[in-house]
Amino acid sequence: MQTIVFFIFAFIAVAAAINMLVQKHPIHSALSLIVVMAMLSIFYVMLYAEFLAVVQVIVYAGAIMVLFVFVIMLLNPREESHRTRQNRFLLVAGVPLGLCLMAEIVILLRRAPLGENETGRQLVGTTEAVGRVLFTDYLLPFEFISVLILIAILGAVVLTKREL
């Protein structure tokens, strides 16, 4: 049952990802990306990570992509009249990099402890578990990230509003 559901949504995710690349109008591409995000969130639910699933939708679909769509609407660009020139650099650098990424994913999957028991997996993704780990084991990286984000916010304010 779960496998069937997984493959249905995986198919939709891959189809939307390809559609994002093929579409000529930026707004259609952005919408396809939103579909991919939504599918990812469904995969998180299937992995018992409800918190991650919901945050995925809130942050990516609900905030970041809204800004993307907002900017596209504001600029109102037309459809691409001609495809981006086939750059030789893309071929030389893109294919090996893509293969590298693929290899990394395969290695990570090999190393991942897949044989764990079902109940143990169910307890990893709850809000309590995520919160506890963030504020104990990973407290320092967590605080570092918040400082980094704060710097980014300040940078955005400085860049857009030169005289306050």
Binding site: A53, V54, V55, V66
Partner: peptide
């Protein structure tokens, strides 16, 4: 009764923005 109930509502309603934005566009 989801254990992330209130966040679920925020997630779902944040998608609703697209309806209005895209309708306008």
């Amino acid at each position: 009764d989801l254990n992330v109930g209130i966040l679920f509502i925020f997630a779902v309603t944040s998608v609703g923005v697209y309806g209005v934005a895209l309708g306008g566009w």
